[in-house]
């Protein structure tokens, strides 16, 4: 197990390196540059700015310098749009916010989605199943950009203590977390049901049932382990996605998280900031997927031998 983890870690470092390299060259393919303003800059000023940030050098030199900055000084570079602010500073402020929202959202998703999926599978093709899956499909079809304003307009205005938007009081995280959570809960419910249906139909469950195994024991002890496989595979990347923020939810609820930075850095060509955010996301994806594989192996011993 330890060897496996170590190997995954090594691969992870490689993934990050490739990711950073690809991102580095891709973003420079985008039209425009970070200094384009609403008004055209005189050419000599554009040249001065490019020179100041080393963007006038060849891409390869820039690439080498970027890695030198990270490896030698732990410097992820400056923001090219919010000049005078370091990329690390921006991420340090936004990440905790997104982390909080992501963890809350995931908690809601898991607590709602997985039990719902299990119940639906247990009562497969009976009315609770239909009802739950109808709700889940609604959750999947209703995008965040509809759900978020609806929550703002209803819960935000009607429920005391909740506010329509803003990041200034104790309960400001509730609505954005709920939005993120419910959308993911719907996915989890569908996936859990799918996995559980598969397992509940398999021979070993029939055997257990024939032996007079109690329903909860059947569900939790025998079926859950392999029934959760699809849901867990989904959870990893979804969790990484959640804690790197969601643009829609953040702009709808005025949350100072990572998602807004992600979109802004792209549309303003803030090369270094985007690079830093992708790095952050990449590390999370690698960790989440590694964690998922470990959990999967724990859930299903067969995978251990297969690896």
């Amino acid at each position: 197990m330890a060897g496996l983890l170590l190997r995954r870690l090594g691969q992870g470092v490689l993934v990050i390196a490739v990711l950073q390299t690809l991102t580095f060259f891709l973003v420079r393919q985008l039209p425009g540059n970070p200094f384009l303003g609403e008004r055209k800059l005189p050419e000599h000023i554009m040249a001065q700015l490019n020179a100041l940030y080393g963007l006038d050098q060849s891409v390869w030199v820039q690439y080498a310098n970027y890695w030198k900055g990270i490896l030698l000084h732990g410097d992820f570079g400056p923001s090219l749009v919010q000049e005078g602010v370091q990329v690390s500073e921006i991420i340090a402020q936004a990440f905790p916010v997104s982390l909080l929202l992501g963890v809350l959202g995931m908690l809601i998703a898991v607590l709602v989605g997985i039990p719902a999926g299990m119940l639906a599978a247990w009562w497969r093709n009976r009315w609770p199943d239909a009802l739950l899956m109808l709700a889940a499909m609604a959750g999947i079809c209703i995008p965040a950009f509809v759900l978020a304003p609806v929550f703002g307009l209803t819960l935000g205005q009607w429920v005391p203590g909740l506010s329509v938007a803003g990041w200034d009081d104790a309960l400001c995280a509730v609505l954005p977390a709920l939005t993120l959570g419910l959308v993911n809960a719907a996915y989890l419910a569908r996936l859990t049901r799918g996995g559980m249906v598969e397992v509940l139909g398999s021979d070993f469950i029939r055997t257990a049932r024939a032996k007079g195994c109690s329903a909860p024991r059947l569900l939790f002890v025998h079926a859950l382990r392999s029934g959760l496989l699809p849901a867990v595979s989904y959870l990893g990347p979804a969790f990484a996605g959640l804690i790197t923020g969601s643009f829609v939810v953040e702009t709808c609820f005025q949350v100072p998280g990572m998602g807004l930075h992600f979109v802004n850095a792209t549309t303003t060509r803030d090369y270094f900031l985007l690079q830093g955010l992708v790095l952050c996301y990449g590390v999370l994806i690698v960790l989440a997927n590694a964690a998922v594989d470990v959990v999967l192996m724990w859930l299903n011993p067969r995978l251990r031998t297969a690896q």
Partner: peptide, 18 residues
């Protein structure tokens, strides 16, 4: 100063006394 990008959000926040 609140940097509210989304005009719909901003309007809702005004009605909510923010």
């Amino acid at each position: 100063f609140l940097p509210i990008v989304n005009g719909y959000t901003e309007t809702r926040m005004f009605w909510d006394g923010k």
